[in-house]
């Protein structure tokens, strides 16, 4: 029973990932695409955590932590680039 609910949750989060990806493609300009990318990274952290739960390996949570750190730095660097160029 609980395994089925976990899988439904994963499918719902993948649909969310698809919607933000659609905004990433459709977005009229660069700032809108960056907002979509910001939300995509957070959803991706959750999906990486779910893969770790599925394969019963804790190491995937470390991967999620490092991914979050790097994406945070990337988003801030993109914001700086938008504000005043490289």
């Amino acid at each position: 029973m609980s395994a089925i609910i976990y899988h439904i949750a994963a499918i719902v989060s993948l649909i969310a990932l698809f919607l933000t990806f659609l905004r990433l493609i459709l977005g009229p300009d660069l700032p809108n695409r960056t907002v979509a990318l910001d939300a995509m990274t957070i959803i991706t952290i959750s999906v990486i955590g779910f893969i770790g739960f599925l394969t019963k390996r804790v190491i995937y949570l470390d991967v999620a932590i490092v991914y979050g750190l790097i994406s945070f730095i990337g988003i801030v660097a993109l914001a700086r680039y938008l504000e005043r160029g490289i």
Binding site: A9, V12, S13, I15, A16, L19, L22, R23, V35
Partner: peptide, 20 residues
């Protein structure tokens, strides 16, 4: 735990719908 995860996934979906 699975119900909490499902609620979290629903909120993620609502956020993505808001972005869209």
């Amino acid at each position: 735990g699975s119900l909490i995860t499902l609620f979290g996934a629903i909120f993620l979906f609502l956020g993505a719908l808001g972005i869209f």
